[in-house]
């Protein structure tokens, strides 16, 4: 116990490279949890994770059925992966996930990002991914602080008691 108190986590830099509901929320819960504990936090979105900070996409994320062997039906039975090919199925499952989260007072992505930024958290987009996907600055939420290179990310991630997490 004394050891953890002597070396507290002071800063976390979290990288989110995927855009499914569970990937984005993992990053947001950890990021928001950090600022609530008084830990400085940078959230860096890259590749498909960019969807989470794009105005038109952030609240329309999906969770995959195809290729998601851990997905269960409400009774606990395994969801057959091939159900994912049925049109509308993925949207339905994603809708159920979101309503389940809402009941636990987990906010939609846009609201979660507002809470995170209000708590002093920093949001960044990856320059390489932005160029690759031809995303424009105005496509992003106004809470995105900057579009930065990986070198700049490491510069911001430094300091005593700092950690980097790839979700």
């Amino acid at each position: 116990m004394s050891d953890t108190n002597e070396h507290p986590v002071k800063k976390v830099s979290i990288i989110c490279a995927k855009g499914a509901i569970e990937d984005v929320y993992a990053a947001l819960v950890m990021g928001n949890g950090a600022v609530m504990e008084g830990i400085e936090c940078n959230l860096f979105f890259t590749f498909f994770g960019l969807d989470a900070i794009m105005k038109k996409r952030m609240d329309k994320l999906h969770t995959a059925i195809l290729g998601n062997p851990a997905l269960r039906l409400p009774g606990g039975a395994r969801m057959p992966s091939l159900m994912g090919v049925i049109p509308g199925m993925e949207a339905m499952v994603s809708g159920m996930m979101k309503s389940g989260m809402d009941k636990l007072d987990i906010p939609p992505v846009s609201e979660f990002i507002e809470l995170f930024v209000a708590g002093g958290g920093n949001l960044y987009a990856c320059k390489l991914a932005v160029e690759m996907f031809k995303v424009k600055k105005e496509d992003f939420s106004e809470h995105v602080k900057d579009i930065i290179t990986i070198g700049e990310f490491y510069e911001k991630a430094g300091g005593e008691g700092s950690h980097i997490i790839f979700t």
Binding site: N32, V35, M36, E37, G38, D105, I106, P107, E111, E114, L115, A118, G119, G120
Partner: peptide, 26 residues
């Protein structure tokens, strides 16, 4: 929850963080 605080109408989250700096909820 921090979301509840934001919706409370008593204080917005940004002010809440400023009023109880560090770990505001705790």
């Amino acid at each position: 929850s921090i979301r509840g605080i934001n919706k409370s109408g008593v204080v917005d989250v940004k002010t809440f963080y400023q009023m109880f700096p560090g770990a505001p909820m705790k």
